[in-house]
Nucleic acid binder design. Structure first.
Lengths: 299, 299
DNA sequence: GGACACTATCAACAATTCATTGATAATAAC
DNA sequence: GTTATTATCAATGAATTGTTGATAGTGTCC
């Protein structure tokens, strides 16, 4: 027996004063209402209503139960409609994790526009380059760069991420422009600590051999620093175009070994479930998807 | 789906932090708990928990729902246990209707003893000789004298009620003692307005003919008055022995036409239902049943 | 006062839902 | 890399649900 329905039936019978009218209002048959009330009485072990075929009268137990049951039903209704509101109008706090360099350069206008479109949504943006656990750390969405291995999570590809090698024209003039990965030998490499590379690619093979023990170059876990260093002639950086793009456009950096370019990675929005998504999350996913254009505006 | 069970499952999962432990505590299978929570989510249209195989995390909607759901469950539990108490310990207000003359003479000690045995029960005793509607007027028990025709109500026979004709020895000396119903002709009849008589009886036939238009005697709707009148020699009264008994024992009244005595009626306790009786009612019925003895102490 | 309409409930059936079992994918610990 | 644990899925038989038609009680209207 669904006690909530039974309670609702009982309360309706009391307020309507008759089983038939209660059944009308609940859009069921009088038989069912009668059965519900009987079952409720059986469950409680007390008669709630004294009834003839014409009149209904509450017993003492019924009176006491009625009040409280009505309160409980109100609470439930309110509770559910509140959940419903939370669902239809996007609202609440949206907790996002994003890669540091990407967020610094490209998240601010997006979030500002998103909040203009969804005033009820507050945003908590956490910048992080390490691997973040969506559920464990309570994020609604995690933006991540790389090739995603399958898991129980949903990963929606938001934008392609091209990783290019580049250096300042001055540096290349002084040290020569590599035409082949093997020419990289002896160059100063500006290494990014967290980069995930697909080992099937030739560019990677060199990096594995020479990049790892990068005695002559520098290493950082922040791409901006590396790109800025490259711009000032510190060496060769392997960084995504969403960082190096403007500098390349302005001629401050020059792309090298373009024909050996790494297979494009992606910017992914990772979230927990496809179904029953809170609408703040769904709205955000919809919003960010396509926001950067294809190809993205930084390329 | 029983939403209450589903809510309980959800709340337990949250408080236990795992489906398996929740299942243990609820004494069901983890599968069922999982299903309940899923159904609840489906019903609400929101994800309540983000879950991997290892960790559980509340969503925002889940957090909001959890609090309120717990409150609702507490309310329900409290409500039901209160009803249960009301049921096991007899308590509450017991509303009784009883015939005027009977109640005046015989109810006081009974009620006093009953309340001593059941301190939690308050009593509202309404004296009334008209036909009272148990459910309509909200009585728990109606004591009624007569032959009960079947209805949806339960009528438990509490004691036999003998109706006897009697008059004072002085009256009989002066007017003669009737030996046969036909001898009643010409006597002064002290008529009771509400008496219900079975028309198959010879005594009744006379009353129908002679009693109805009772020009020479008197009529009252109160048996005590009639009996007192009979004692003081006003005529012949047809009244139950629970009124006339003591006067008869003391010789103030003399029974006549004993061989034509009306078939004994009964004192009935009428109540609405046999099952799911509030225990204050059941206790009272049990208490009054047998209280007057068989034959009753007034005979 | 008797036919009538209305009401609550009962009984029985078909459709649905339920709880259980075993299997599976994902994850953490060893 | 293997094992153990966890949540969920899938399939099955069992229990429950809501429906239908029937029945008894109860006012009402001529």
């Amino acid at each position: 027996m669904d006690r909530i329905n039974a309670m609702r039936a009982f309360v309706t019978v009391v307020s309507e004063g008759a089983f038939t009218r209660a059944a009308d209002r609940l859009e069921t048959s009088p038989q069912l209402v009668s059965k519900y009330v009987s079952q409720l009485e059986q469950h409680l072990g007390v008669r709630l209503l004294n009834r003839t075929t014409r009149k209904i009268h509450l017993t003492e137990a019924g009176t006491s139960y009625h009040q409280r049951a009505q309160q409980v039903l109100n609470d439930i209704d309110e509770m559910e409609s509140q959940i419903g509101d939370l669902q239809t109008r996007a609202q609440g706090l949206l907790r996002i994790s994003a890669p540091v360099s990407f967020a610094i350069r490209h998240m601010a206008p997006l979030l500002s526009e998103f909040q203009k479109a969804h005033p009820g949504v507050g945003i908590d943006l956490q910048l992080n380059d390490r691997k973040v656990d969506v559920v464990e750390e309570g994020f609604d969405v995690v933006l991540r760069i790389g090739h995603l291995k399958s898991s129980s999570l949903i990963a929606k590809r938001i934008a392609p991420v091209r990783i290019v090698m580049c250096a300042s024209p001055a540096y290349l003039k002084q040290n020569g422009t590599p035409q082949h990965p093997e020419d990289l030998q002896g160059h100063r490499y500006l290494r990014y600590s967290y980069i995930e590379l697909d080992s099937s690619q030739s560019l990677h093979r060199w990096l594995q051999n020479n990049g790892q023990n990068n005695s002559s170059g520098m290493t950082s876990n922040n791409g901006d620093v590396l790109v800025e260093s490259a711009i000032s002639g510190a060496g060769i950086a392997l960084q995504p175009t969403f960082i190096s793009g403007p500098a390349i456009k302005e001629g401050k950096l020059q792309v090298i070994l373009q024909e050996y370019e790494l297979e494009p990675m992606g910017l992914y929005a990772v979230y927990a479930h496809r179904q029953l998504l809170a609408s703040k999350v769904r709205s955000f996913i919809d919003f960010i998807d396509g926001y950067f254009g294809d190809p993205p505006y930084w390329d």
